[in-house]
């Protein structure tokens, strides 16, 4: 290899290495932090300590971990299933069924992706109040169910769904809803898996909206619990880091078990 190519290659590796480090650093910091006491963390200690068990015990005592974990899981799983069901039907419908108003309605739907959540927050809060849903998990789930982005994602993916499969199913005697359920859903499994990962992670990490609508401790999610630990008068960073780890594990788990389908689904959606 010539010196100039070697230098180019070295430059590329240095660049990639830097960004890899920047990506991985928060995780490393989390792992190191959860084994150290607050004082050491503030002093910038970056070696593993011996305080993990103490931090973990404190976290489970202070945060009512099983309850907040359960709340988060319930919201994320139910929210994801509802979002996939509603948005995939919408995406399929937008792509398959023709109507003169289709593209205009779809355009309006895409516009909703552009609206910042901060703008929607107050109207949504008022709506939830009128529906009597404040401080319920349904109030957290409901606004995310018809997601403009997920509808868009499913419409794009449906472009790869062969129209002849639908024709064959019609000749075989299936009605439209049966075609969706028995042919489309199993055929688009990878698309659903990829969407599941994205929607689940968003729902699990959701912070601002639950902070507004969930008002009692028994309803709070894990992100809110960690936040309240971090915003205490004397925050215990070791405990916060244990909470961050506990909060990260489910999303990592979901991602790794669906990794293959996730990649296939993302490829399939842009092909």
């Amino acid at each position: 290899m010539s010196p100039s190519r070697l230098a180019t290659r070295a430059g590329i590796y240095a660049f990639l290495g830097l960004f890899a480090f920047l990506s991985v650093f928060p995780f490393l910091w989390m792992i190191v932090g959860m084994t150290n006491r607050t004082g050491d963390i503030i002093l910038g200690r970056f070696t593993l300590g011996d305080a993990f068990l103490e931090n973990a015990r404190n976290f489970f005592e202070q945060a009512d971990a099983p309850l907040v974990f359960w709340n988060s899981a319930k919201i994320a799983i139910l929210g994801t299933i509802a979002t996939l069901a509603v948005s995939s039907i919408a995406g399929y419908g937008f792509e398959i069924f023709r109507s003169p108003a289709r593209e205009r309605i779809y355009g309006v739907l895409l516009l909703t992706i552009m609206i910042p959540f901060a703008v929607l927050m107050i109207p949504l809060f008022v709506i939830m109040g009128k529906l009597g849903l404040i401080n319920t998990h349904i109030a957290v789930i409901l606004p995310t169910v018809a997601s403009g982005f997920v509808v868009f994602y499913f419409r794009q993916a449906t472009k790869a769904f062969p129209s002849e499969l639908r024709d064959a199913a019609r000749v075989d005697g299936l009605k439209e809803w049966q075609i969706f359920l028995y042919i489309y859903v199993p055929t688009m499994r990878s698309t659903y898996a990829a969407a599941f990962v994205i929607v689940f992670m968003t729902a699990w990490n959701n912070y601002l909206w639950p902070l507004i609508v969930l008002q009692t401790n028994d309803k709070k999610t894990i992100t809110l619990a960690i936040s309240s630990l971090a915003s205490a008068y004397y925050p215990d960073y070791g405990v916060v880091m244990v909470g961050a780890l506990v909060a990260t594990l489910p999303t990592l788990f979901v991602f790794f078990i669906m990794q293959r389908q996730f990649v296939q689904g993302m490829l399939g959606s842009v092909k």
């Binding site: 062969p162 002849e164 499969l165 024709d167 064959a168 000749v171 042919i183 055929t187």
Partner: peptide
């Protein structure tokens, strides 16, 4: 019964 160009197998 119909046979399609792309086979249309499930």
């Amino acid at each position: 019964a119909m046979v399609f160009q792309s086979y249309a197998l499930y």
